[in-house]
Structures are given as structure tokens and as C-alpha cells.
Nucleic acid binder design. Sequence first.
DNA 1: CGCTGGATTGAGGCCGATCAACTTCAGTGG
DNA 2: CCACTGAAGTTGATCGGCCTCAATCCAGCG
Lengths: 236, 236
Amino acid sequence: MHTPHMDDSVCCGCHLTPFCIGSEKLRANPEFDSLPVKRRFVVKKNERLIAPNSHFQYLFAIEKGSIKTVQSEADGGELIRGFYFSGEVLGYEAIYSGRYHFTAIALTETHVCMLDYHDFLYYLQSNPELQQHILYLISLQLNVGSYLVSTKADRKLACFLLDLSSRLHRAQMHPEFQLPMSRQDIGNYLRLTAETVSRTFTRLQQNNIISINNKKIGLLKIDVLRQIAEGLTSVE
Amino acid sequence: MHTPHMDDSVCCGCHLTPFCIGSEKLRANPEFDSLPVKRRFVVKKNERLIAPNSHFQYLFAIEKGSIKTVQSEADGGELIRGFYFSGEVLGYEAIYSGRYHFTAIALTETHVCMLDYHDFLYYLQSNPELQQHILYLISLQLNVGSYLVSTKADRKLACFLLDLSSRLHRAQMHPEFQLPMSRQDIGNYLRLTAETVSRTFTRLQQNNIISINNKKIGLLKIDVLRQIAEGLTSVE
DNA sequence: CGCTGGATTGAGGCCGATCAACTTCAGTGG
DNA sequence: CCACTGAAGTTGATCGGCCTCAATCCAGCG
């Protein structure tokens, strides 16, 4: 991990905020402890947050920014396991094995909170609401990226764009947004080549379903995009 | 759900057994409560355990047998989301939405325990060890089926067979086993056609990497199979 | 201004889907 | 026990979509 510098800005929150310092609830009931946040810091673009195969110790809450987790394959290829955006929590996959079987890299400047997992477990004991909430969050995680199994490229990309449009802005659906990752990253995630991603974007644009200008995406016909995402239509 | 009949046989356990009736630990410390098991019953082959889109209320622990979860798609196709075998627990995916977005069907006669989720949460409060254990189990679940994103058919199937060989017998790796599901089910899970599954099996057999006789599988060269699973080699 | 890496576009080949024929298997009833 | 039947599995021929490789375009930046 590159030497991160501490973050003294105002926290804009994450999925664990209800249990964290300064939440409404905790201010009203100072007898409750807050989540044991180890420290907050900033990871710069293209810097590494987690080294591959390193020992699992922390969950990372992303306050602001975007992260990719990358698994290098035996054949030399790189597989992107997931993208994580503002508000989301990263690291659950590593609990079972005690190791992060991936590298985590910031796609944009990213503000992160570290939560020591053992402290977290200890805090969990005294907080049944968090017990329920954490099961909810991991359950959500189990359903993320289920569209990866689609076979058609246009379907995968339609799902991907719809997914991004709601996750990039803290679950608020936005029809316009900036792609934080490259075509290659998208391809590595969806198991397509960058060329196929590019071609499919072009076709979607030619049909006026999306607009695309480098990394700037606009969803023009969301209903059509949803139909493609469900496999009911194709482009061209 | 078809009218299930109660199971009065001896329990052979599941991933939650350490917290359940009759475990070593609980017999030694009778002051601890046991997990609130609602009831045990048997689901016959091809019968339904969970109706599609039904309200989430229970986690299901599979004591013995095999289950598939099926999601019907808008285009009429059927996607198999997962297979569950002896010892495994089914239902985490439904926590976040409060609904099972799938059908669960028994592939073979299956013995199941129902756990009411609200009772489970209540029990969880008083049991930090279970808190830790359940996070471990769901973390494991997050990593199941990660090989689905492979692009090549032989690679998917190699991963699938290795996965099955260890999961079918309570995490004990067995080089010989019986496939509980059809070629079509395998295809729907791996996003291949039944024809491709059949052809790939045949090629693996011709190279003496596996033996296959209808549903009976033997893994002859596990090291080679692992290489294929990692994308280092192909068949033929 | 040229450099560099990402993005786009084009031509050709391969793998898995599709469609169809055939074989094998499991279950049923005579 | 065998004959029948429908489902599951295998095998073959063809087609199409994505990959591959290569050239070009473009944006950001010194």
C-alpha cells in the first residue's frame, strides 16, 4: 500500500454510517459506542488499496470515489472481480479465507475508512441492529453482478450501465454519469474484449439508446436499455 | 410447496450444527440455547422447496441431498443460480429484498431444516460465536461460483467438476461421484447448451482426464483438470 | 508540437449455439 | 421378463457472434 495521507475532511457517509461517529442516532444517545473506525485516508488515482494475497484484517468503507478489485489469473490475464463506489463496503469476500485474494486499486481519488475486523466483531456483539444490517448488506452483495452470466455482449453492457447509473450516486439513479474505468476494465469485468465493448457502445449510440463521449455516458432510452438488459431485444 | 413429510431420522448435520440441538458443545453446556429449528422434513426428487417470488421467511439448511435454485428469465429461458448440497445453507440471497427471487427444486430426495429468520436473528444476539460463524459462511458463499465468468467451455466444466467433487461430500474431495443434475441443468448453470456440455465431457474422456458413464463421474487426472480450470491448457 | 496510452474501426478465424437425427436410459404396464 | 414411451444424452453439420490481430484515430499532456 502506498503511504496514504490522512483525511480530515467532513465524512460524507457510507452504508455503515448509522452506526458510526456523529450519526444522528449516536448524537442523541451518547451511551452507545460508535463503530471502531481505525482511520480515514485518501487513495490517489491508480494507487493500490490492498496488496494481492495479503492478510485479511480490515473492511474498507468507501466514503467517496471508486475502486476495482483485480485478480490475476494463472494464464497472465487479469480478471476484475468487482467495482466499488461511494458508500459501499469492500472486503467481505476475504473473511472466509483470511486473505484478500485480489488487488484493490483506486480508479479515481478515493476516500476510505478502515475497520479492523476483530474490533468490528467485538462491536457487533453489543449491537443487534448492526447484526441485522450487516446481513442485509452482505445479502445485497450476493446479488451484485449476477448479470455477468449473460451470454450476449449487448445484454451484459446494458445491465452494466443500468447497474452503474444507480450505484455511482449512492443508489440514486442518474441517466448521465462519468465512467470511472477504462474500456479494458469494463471488458475484464464483463469477460469481453475492449474492442467488443467499444463496438457495442457504438451500436447503442447509433440506435440513440445511449449517448457516449469518451467517458461521459447518457442513457437516452432507459426503457429500451432495460429490455436489452432482460434479453428481450438486441441492438442492430 | 408440496406437503412435505416430517423427518424423524437421525440428523447428519450441516454448517450450523455446532449451534444446533445435540451438538457436542450444547450437550456439555446445557445452559446454552440451541438454534431455533422450525422443523425438519423431506423433499422428494423434483419437488419444490421454495416457490418463485415468495416471501422470505426461512433459511434452509440442507442436511442431506441436493437442491437447485432456478430463476426464470423474461425471454422464457431458465437460469440456474446455484446448486446446494449436504451441509450447505440456502436463502442468504433473499435477506436483502425480503423475497426469494427464484424457485428451489430438489434434484434428489433431500432432507431439510427450516430456520425462521427472525428467530434466527434473535438467537444471533446472544451468540457472538454464531455471529462470527455466519459471516464466515456468507463470505464463503460470496466466493462460490466465481468460475462462471470463465469464457471457455472446457474451463468452466473443469472448474465445475472440481467444485462438485469437493462439495458433494461435505467438503471432502472425492475423485468419483454421481452427478445429481442433468446436462441441461449444468448448461443452464454454466451458460452453455446441453450439447456443448456433452461434447466437452466426451473430449475430456477421450483424453483420459475424466471417466464418464451417464451420471457417474471419475476424475482420472486431477492435476490436468486443475490446469484446464486455471486456463493453462485446453482439451484437444 | 510530438508523444503515449486509450479508444475505435476493420478483416478474418474459431468456438459455441442452433437445428436435426439418432441412441440410450428410466419408468410403466402388460 | 419384455415392449413401449418419453425424456435425456450423444453426435453431426451449419451459422453467427465474439476474439484476434492490426491499423488508425484521438485526448491528454509534457
